[in-house]
Amino acid sequence: MVGEQGDGPRVVAVSRDGEHRFSKPLVDEVVLVEGWGIEGDAHAGTTVQHRSRVARDPSQPNLRQVHLIHAEVFDEVAAAGFHVEPGQMGENVTTRGVDLLGLPTGTVLHLGDSARVQVTGLRNPCQQINDFEPGLLRAVLGRADDGSVERKGGVMSIVLAGGTVRPGDGIRVELPAGEPQPLQPV
């Protein structure tokens, strides 16, 4: 359920939940389905599945099929006194060794042997994070030197190619061609 430490970018843990809950239980593997998301996860689908977004416009394309978060953020919030483990912030894939927040929009992440996801934007941390652990929202929302908001809740993506992803799988980063476009909340 949680992968071993190793060299290079890798998957640390995978999670899914068929219900709309904040945290997702760890599983031994997840199956990514092209254009759909994670098999058996409540956020899978071609159109938006996030409840507040469905209420606004259920026909929007689902740019949030797979949520990835970097385990390094758990280390960062631990220094502020919070204890967060993989899956607890609602992510499907917990990574280590990839600067997810620094990737440009459109980056393709190769997960394991065959799965590929395309990064669509930043997760916008919400009040549910404080419901999980009071004060945690402030720890995952910071301010950059220029005063802009830093969202540290991971990235969202769509599935380009299906496959099985397990803890310990390697990750390869494929940057998009052209001028890099910074990530925006989706």
Rank of each mutant, 00 (worst) to 15 (best):
M1F: 13
V2F: 12
G3R: 08
Q5M: 11
G8I: 04
P9F: 05
P9Q: 07
P9S: 15
P9V: 10
A13E: 10
A13M: 04
V14I: 09
S15V: 03
S15R: 04
R16L: 12
D17G: 13
D17L: 13
G18S: 15
G18N: 14
H20G: 02
F22P: 14
S23R: 14
K24V: 00
P25A: 13
P25H: 06
P25W: 08
P25Q: 13
V27P: 11
V27H: 03
D28W: 05
E29N: 10
E29F: 14
V30H: 10
L32V: 06
V33A: 07
V33R: 15
G35A: 08
E39I: 06
E39C: 02
D41K: 05
D41I: 01
A42W: 01
A42S: 15
H43G: 02
H43C: 06
A44E: 07
G45L: 04
G45M: 02
T46W: 01
T46I: 08
T47L: 00
T47A: 05
T47G: 00
V48I: 15
Q49T: 08
Q49A: 09
S52T: 10
V54A: 00
A55E: 14
R56S: 09
D57G: 00
P58C: 02
P58Q: 01
S59N: 13
S59V: 01
N62V: 06
L63R: 11
R64P: 00
Q65E: 02
V66S: 07
L68S: 10
I69M: 11
H70Q: 14
A71I: 06
E72A: 15
V73P: 05
F74T: 02
V77Q: 12
V77F: 10
A79W: 04
A79K: 13
F82K: 07
V84I: 15
G87W: 02
G87A: 12
G87R: 09
M89V: 14
G90P: 04
G90L: 04
E91V: 01
T94S: 14
T94L: 07
G97C: 00
V98L: 09
V98R: 00
D99M: 01
L101A: 07
L101V: 02
L103A: 05
L103S: 09
L103K: 14
G106V: 10
T107H: 08
L111K: 05
D113A: 15
D113Q: 11
R116S: 09
V117M: 11
V119D: 08
G121K: 08
L122A: 09
R123W: 05
P125D: 09
C126H: 03
C126N: 06
Q127E: 13
I129R: 09
I129F: 15
F132A: 08
E133H: 15
G135M: 04
R138K: 12
A139C: 12
A139S: 12
V140Q: 06
L141Q: 14
A144C: 07
D145C: 01
D146Y: 05
G147P: 10
G147A: 11
S148H: 06
V149P: 01
R151E: 09
G153P: 04
G154Y: 01
G154Q: 03
G154W: 00
G154I: 01
V159R: 10
V159Y: 04
L160D: 11
T164R: 15
T164F: 10
V165R: 09
V165C: 11
P167L: 04
D169M: 01
I171M: 13
V173N: 06
A177C: 06
A177D: 14
G178R: 04
E179H: 13
Q181W: 03
Q181S: 12
Q181V: 12
P182E: 03
P182R: 11
Q184H: 14
